[in-house]
């Protein structure tokens, strides 16, 4: 019996040492990993809404960020549109100006076919969305203004529809909660 206890102990010892080492390295790398992710999102937000200087998180049915300029004025919004593409979800970061017009988009995450649907990350495709409103964010076949990617209609439609839906949702959310924070300190004073 003691033999088996010894075996168990050795295994436990090794596992314990391993855990300790891993815990140590985890302590070193975790902050960097988290920082990486935050940086990535911030960068994406800045790309799709370059007018904004800082961003402010707003919790809602569709969570979004408010983009504020140097003076703290709202210049637009950014949010994630998730569409079901050809072979999985496509996450698109959308930047919306104050006038409910697309400022820019960036496809953050997709698993579409390389050379086909995956071309949706290319600027040739994403730049088409600039300055479109919710009605225009549709592929041409569906009556919108977005040219599809050759051979990958499904991807283009998925991206367009997800953005369009999210924009409609944003509109609702913003109408429900009236535009505030134009002059935060004035509000407070009143």
């Amino acid at each position: 019996m003691s033999y088996y206890i010894r075996l168990g102990l050795i295994l436990f010892l090794i596992a314990a040492v391993a855990s300790a080492v891993l815990a140590f390295i985890n302590g070193l790398t975790e902050p960097i990993i988290i920082e990486n992710q935050i940086q990535l999102e911030i960068q994406a937000r800045q790309v799709v809404l370059p007018q904004a200087d800082t961003f402010e998180y707003v919790e809602d049915e569709l969570p979004y960020y408010r983009g504020l300029d140097e003076d703290g004025n709202i210049v637009g919004y950014t949010f994630m549109a998730v569409g079901s593409g050809y072979s999985g979800d496509i996450d698109t970061m959308v930047g919306l100006t104050d006038e409910m017009i697309v400022s820019n988009i960036q496809v953050i995450q997709q698993t579409e076919t390389p050379g086909l649907g995956a071309n949706c990350t290319r600027p040739e495709f994403t730049e088409q969305y600039q300055d479109l409103d919710a009605e225009q964010v549709k592929i041409e076949r569906d009556g919108g203004k977005v040219e599809t990617i050759t051979g990958a209609t499904i991807t283009a439609r998925a991206v367009s529809n997800s953005i369009s839906e999210a924009m409609i949702q944003m509109k609702k959310q913003l109408e429900a909660a009236p535009k505030i924070n134009i002059e935060p300190d004035i509000e407070e004073a009143a």
């Binding site: 009605e135 549709k138 569906d142 009556g143 369009s164």
Partner: peptide, 10 residues
């Protein structure tokens, strides 16, 4: 359905 919702003339 999507089309009909978004565009009456779809």
């Amino acid at each position: 359905n999507n089309i009909n919702e978004a565009f009456p003339n779809a």
